[in-house]
């Protein structure tokens, strides 16, 4: 007889009823799932298809595309990087500080401030790290993108992943990847210009919990420049409701260039990024829950460290366009 332990499982649906159920499962099924992915660790160079599963059992199988399980395609990504290089080098003139703090292997959660009506911080961070560190970066973002035809597919091909805790855990713990998250969410990008560089609440600290659970460090990144690329003058809430967008901004770009060009073109603000020291949490991974007060403290201290870095960088910045 195998030893049995209680297993809590969910039979789907049945709202309003207790969804925990009491089937029993032999102990061996409780093996840490992460171990089966142990083979996927190691140093990684850019053209990565880290899908741990596909083709693993069918040696003869050849893929007709390089789309990994997240929907990311390295070939499309490299085309996009080639196209973006001009903007990165000459338009936004991106400068990094402390890039060596990005680990060359192992999972890590990159956490940054978020700004601009159509934020340029995400593509710039992803581009910069992929080009100079040589690792793919998966950008966690609102599931809103997933529901858009064409744009949603492109977003996912270029490394976008719906920000679900399970997705983040799998990326960080099982596949030891780099994931980028903006804890401010749309609260950051929907700020009007007068509120620039004042960080919003960092959600409910979910990003800290995920990093603890996955046993990976958080690497805060402070970004200066994004606020000036597409500053919001005011917002029209009724239009946001009507269109289903998270917010409906009237940007300075719109007022100057009209709705088409004003949406497509960001102002050429000078970008400066500073990678802060990695934050390690000395807690055991894979716990069901972590102390909420500890989580909120860590979340707040990361927010404060990014905020202070921003003030410091702004104090040294001469002009938003020239740096």
């Amino acid at each position: 007889m195998q030893p049995k332990i209680r297993l809590e499982g969910t039979i789907c649906g049945r709202p309003g009823t207790d969804t925990k159920e009491l089937l029993e499962l032999p102990v061996m099924a409780q093996n840490n799932r992460a171990e089966s992915f142990a083979s996927s660790k190691g140093n990684t160079i850019v053209p990565i298809k880290r899908s741990t599963d596909l083709g693993s059992q069918n040696v003869n199988s050849t893929r007709l595309s390089d789309v990994d399980e997240w929907g990311r395609s390295e070939s499309l990504r490299s085309v996009a990087r080639r196209g973006f290089q001009f903007f990165y080098d000459s338009y936004f003139r991106v400068e990094w500080e402390g890039l060596e703090k990005i680990p060359t292997e192992g999972g890590a959660l990159l956490v940054s401030n978020h700004a601009g009506a159509i934020p340029m911080d995400a593509p710039i961070i992803m581009h910069g790290i992929e080009e100079s560190v040589g690792r793919p970066v998966y950008g966690l973002a609102d599931h809103f993108f997933r529901k858009l035809p064409v744009a949603g597919t492109m977003w996912s091909r270029l490394g976008g992943v719906p920000a679900h805790p399970d997705n983040a855990y799998r990326l960080l713990r099982d596949q030891r990847q780099l994931a980028l998250v903006f804890p401010e969410g749309t609260k950051g990008t929907s700020k009007v210009f007068t509120q620039r560089y004042r960080l919003r609440r960092f959600g409910r600290g979910g990003f800290v919990e995920i990093a603890m659970k996955a046993g990976v460090p958080i690497i805060p990144i402070a970004v200066v420049g994004s606020e000036e690329t597409m500053p919001i003058v005011f917002k029209i809430n009724s239009l946001a409701k009507l269109t289903g967008l998270p917010y409906f901004p009237i940007t300075a770009n719109w007022l100057l260039m009209g709705p088409v060009l004003g949406t497509a073109l960001s102002f050429p603000a000078k970008f400066k990024l500073r990678v802060l020291d990695p934050v390690h949490f000395n807690v055991p991974p894979d716990q069901e829950r972590y102390s909420k007060s500890r989580v909120m403290d860590e979340s707040e201290s990361i927010r404060v460290s990014i905020q202070e870095a921003l003030y410091d960088m702004l104090a040294h910045r001469g002009n938003p366009w020239l740096g």
């Binding site: 599931h143 719906p162 679900h164 805790p165 399970d166």
Partner: peptide
């Protein structure tokens, strides 16, 4: 659209 990639 709100689903995770994998369902356990």
């Amino acid at each position: 659209g709100r689903d995770p990639l994998w369902f356990s």
